[in-house]
């Protein structure tokens, strides 16, 4: 069971959080301008890499804020958390 640092509340146990998939995949600004293939890429394709991975978490049973976490998918190390709008370098 992870202990995840919510940037707003501090470290809490994993059951308080909800997972939200890969971070920094924005909803396209103008979906109508995209081809079927481009739209499908947004809908269905996510990275599945070994190593440091930026992902979204929601403090669902706490402050309800979404934020991002850098996790090493090879070791399960939680490198750090950072707020929406920040980049992975801000993880701590």
């Amino acid at each position: 069971m992870f202990q995840i640092r919510c940037p707003y509340c501090g470290p809490r146990d994993e059951p308080e959080f909800k997972y939200g998939g890969q971070a920094h995949v924005a909803y396209p600004a103008d979906p109508e301008a995209l081809s079927d293939e481009e739209w499908a890429r947004f809908l269905f394709f996510r990275d599945n890499s070994k190593g440091r991975y930026a992902e979204r978490w929601n403090h669902a049973a706490g402050c309800r804020r979404w934020f991002n976490v850098v996790r090493d998918t090879g070791t399960h190390e939680l490198v750090g958390s950072y707020r929406v709008g920040e980049q992975p370098e801000a993880a701590r």
Binding site: Y27, R56, N58, A60, W66, V84
Partner: peptide, 10 residues
């Protein structure tokens, strides 16, 4: 949750 997600992140 869905509404909060879009409100906070998009």
């Amino acid at each position: 949750d869905w509404m909060e997600d879009f409100l906070q992140t998009e």
